[in-house]
């Protein structure tokens, strides 16, 4: 058994990745439209989870209003397409830009808040966005009904109508996202996030512009959530304020925390538990809120680092735990 494991570990990781990609491409083929849609939704939430992971996992900041940016992306695509006839795929970069700009505007004034306080304010901002959409702000968001009549995306003359096409569209962006966040994680910016997450004061004293670096986490994460929103609008062709619901933000947050903050495979595991399984099983869906709470509490007690944590974060959490248990004796 161990011999097998050792041999498996020796395999070039590139082969694993290629294998997984081929599997992801072939997997939906024997399935029906319903299950293809479930896969599409899974991919979409993995993208959302990865975008939130930049903020929560890498930079160690709270964001419980992430769904607001998801909705902003969807509305951007809807408005541009319905009113100006912009092809769906061309609205994607605009949506990313809108998400990023709003990410900047909303988080700039609250960036000095820490921990729970930041968390509360992000919840409030999420609600502000949802209520603005419900109240038909500027008369363009269609109120509680949202907007409908979005065109189908067209790629090289092919109208993307069936779920399978949308699955591949999401898969394409998912692969790109994974590539991008891995580059980001190991970049200079990624290291700066890691330093801030561990010790903000020390990071500041070492010459890291903490405000700028934290802002960048929010800007990138928000822009990417908006992209996911656009992809949603492209398939469903209807957008509504429901996308900005607090529960959506909670689900995204749970995806990141359940799988393991800061871990890319963790986001996959988290999405499986929070989105895919409830979607497949009616019973689980009805009880999803309870299941969500139960999962969170169990995780906090039994496995605070998540189901598939990143090596580094597991060390950080263990170190913090040890410190907490030693502190009363050694405190000065």
């Amino acid at each position: 058994m161990t011999a097998l494991r050792e041999r498996l570990q020796k395999v070039n990781p590139l082969w694993w990745q290629l294998g997984l990609l081929v599997l992801a491409i072939l997997f939906p083929l024997p399935l029906g439209d319903y299950h293809r849609s479930v896969l599409w939704r899974t991919g979409l939430y993995i993208i959302l989870g990865l975008s939130l992971n930049i903020i929560v996992g890498y930079a160690g900041l709270f964001q419980l209003g992430h769904a607001a940016f998801y909705a902003l992306g969807a509305y951007t695509t809807a408005l541009l397409n319905i009113h100006f006839g912009v092809p769906i795929l061309l609205t994607l970069p605009v949506a990313i830009l809108v998400g990023a700009v709003f990410g900047y505007l909303i988080t700039r004034p609250i960036l000095h808040l820490r921990g729970d306080y930041l968390c509360i304010v992000t919840i409030a901002f999420g609600e502000v966005v949802r209520l603005a959409l419900v109240n038909n702000i500027f008369g363009i968001t269609g109120g509680a009904n949202g907007l409908s009549g979005i065109e189908r995306p067209v790629l090289f003359g092919l109208v993307l109508r069936q779920p399978i096409y949308h699955y591949y569209l999401v898969l394409f962006f998912l692969v790109f996202t994974i590539f991008a966040v891995r580059r980001l994680e190991n970049s200079r910016l990624g290291r700066a996030w890691m330093y801030i997450r561990e010790d903000e004061v020390a990071a500041e004293a070492m010459g890291i512009d903490t405000v700028r670096v934290k802002l960048l986490a929010f800007i990138i994460g928000s822009g990417w959530a908006a992209l996911a929103g656009s992809l949603y609008a492209a398939k469903i062709t209807v957008v509504s304020p429901d996308q900005a619901k607090f529960l959506e933000s909670v689900i995204m947050f749970c995806i990141v925390v359940l799988g393991g903050t800061g871990s890319i495979p963790g986001v996959f595991v988290g999405t499986l538990g929070m989105v895919t399984l409830p979607e497949l099983s009616r019973a689980l869906k009805d009880w999803r809120d309870a299941w969500l709470g139960l999962a969170m509490v169990t995780m906090m007690i039994a496995r605070p680092e998540g189901l598939w944590p990143s090596r580094r974060i597991r060390m950080e959490i263990r170190a913090a735990k040890e410190e907490a248990s030693v502190a009363p004796a050694a405190g000065n």
């Binding site: 200079r188 290291r191 700066a192 890691m194 330093y195 561990e198 010790d199 020390a202 990071a203 070492m206 010459g207 890291i208 580094r312 060390m315 950080e316 170190a319």
Partner: peptide, 16 residues
Amino acid sequence: FSTLTVMENLNMGAYT
């Protein structure tokens, strides 16, 4: 940074 290696700690000092 207790979970970073000595090298990584030093590299952080050279961030600027």
